[in-house]
Amino acid sequence: MNRRYFLRLTGLSGAAMVALPGLGYVSATNKEAAVGVIMQELAYLKLDRKGVEQYVEDYFRNHYINSSFKAQLNLKTCYYLGVTSGNSRLVHEIVHYYLISTDFFLNKMDESRLVKYLGIYNAYARSCSNPFSFLYYPPEVV
């Protein structure tokens, strides 16, 4: 996200944060906003919502967003305004990391299958889990 775009979003966010509750919307928590941006961005996939929520719990643990009002504002703005990963580095980071932490790529990007969260992607917790490697695409398949 470039600076100008961010400032515009921040301004809109400020206005939205004031206006939306007045219009009857309940302000989302940071985690709800994070779940929301994932569900919005990947609306065409069958996501296991409980898995998404668990991912956000895991992802937020020790994340700088917990102590950064600026990042929280950014996230909620993106959520309320439907900003996608192409326009927000934060949304890209959250969604990108979510998807690699699921079985979506292990299932060869099959959109008909329920996408299940497997735990934060960590090669030390699950070695040999690179979903694009020869283990999942052996030579005779490539």
């Binding site: 065409y44 192409g86 990108h96 690699i100 790529f105 990007m109 992607y121 690179n130 694009f132 490697s133």
Partner: peptide, 14 residues
């Protein structure tokens, strides 16, 4: 490079 990178674009992932 063979890291698990991908494109955030439907149908164009890898």
């Amino acid at each position: 490079n063979n890291a698990p990178y991908y494109r955030m674009e439907r149908g164009k992932w890898r």
